[in-house]
Computed example of a mutant assay.
Amino acid sequence: MTRQKILITGASSGLGEEMARRFAAQGRDLALCARRLGRLESLKDELQAAHPGIAVAVRELDVTDHDAVVRVFGELRGELGGLDRVVVNAGLGKGARIGTGRADANLATARTNFVGALSQCEAALAIFREQNSGHLVLVSSISADRGLPGPKAAYSASKAGVSALGEALTAEFSKSPIVVTTLLPGFIATDMSGKAGDTTMMSTLDAGVDAMVSAIEKETNRAPLPGIRWRGIDLALRFLPHAWTSRFV
């Protein structure tokens, strides 16, 4: 099945922006959301210039505002004439050691990455239930497999929540026309990941997004990526003793 009308949140940079380029090149119609409307409008102009036959709709959106998520998803559905796939991609990577006076950073990460993802799932699945079809994609992280220490603690916890949500929804819709995919990217070179420090295991943006789009198109239920290395790390983090896997975290 070709999912022609695709909504992507967090589309003004990084993984979301590159996924939009990939789907536009395939002739898909796009609904793009992010907090930075100016960057979305520039991306829209670029995509429509390169691919004149596609429709691109953009909206400013803060995914921590649940009412706005519901309203914007509804508006974009109306503008494109439907939604076949929603990619829950908007995320935040800032954080601090818990208890060191930077609760603001950790709470913002938790609200955006988990509560915001839940809001997007609520809005998307209300649409998919009504039309009895659709593909929901959750962008989690390999860090969801194991709680990470220090400044990454809130981030990994928030992504663990996204993965658990994806697992629950996959089970709920397993015998329905609604499909749920959870992506677990490893280290992929973006503006956000560039602040992570160690880059020895970093994949290029092209390789990472190619793997993400491939898994999305296959409608895989759960996909650690890119490549066999991250599938191996995913298995190790989930099933081996902490003493054996401490070097990964």
Rank of each mutant, 00 (worst) to 15 (best):
M1V: 07
R3P: 03
K5E: 01
T9M: 10
T9W: 13
G10L: 01
G16E: 07
M19N: 02
M19D: 04
A20G: 08
A20R: 09
R21N: 11
G27H: 00
R28L: 06
D29G: 08
A31T: 04
A31R: 05
A34E: 08
L37I: 07
K44S: 10
E46W: 07
E46D: 12
L47K: 04
A50P: 02
H51V: 15
P52T: 11
I54H: 04
I54M: 09
I54W: 04
R59D: 07
D62N: 15
V63Q: 07
D65C: 13
V69I: 05
V72N: 07
V72R: 09
F73V: 13
R77A: 13
R85W: 09
V88C: 15
G91R: 00
G95D: 00
G101M: 03
T112Q: 05
V115G: 01
A117W: 05
Q120G: 06
F128Q: 05
S133W: 06
S133C: 03
S140E: 07
S141F: 00
D145W: 10
R146W: 01
G147D: 07
P149T: 05
P149G: 09
P149Y: 01
G150V: 04
A153T: 15
A160W: 05
S163G: 10
S163E: 14
L165C: 13
L169Q: 04
S174K: 12
P177C: 00
G186A: 07
I188T: 11
K195G: 11
K195F: 04
L205G: 11
A207T: 15
G208Q: 05
D210G: 13
M212N: 02
A215F: 08
E219P: 00
N221A: 15
N221C: 12
A223N: 08
G227Y: 10
W230Q: 13
I233H: 12
D234W: 14
A236W: 03
R238W: 11
W244Q: 08
W244C: 09
V249I: 14
V249F: 11
V249E: 10
V249T: 15
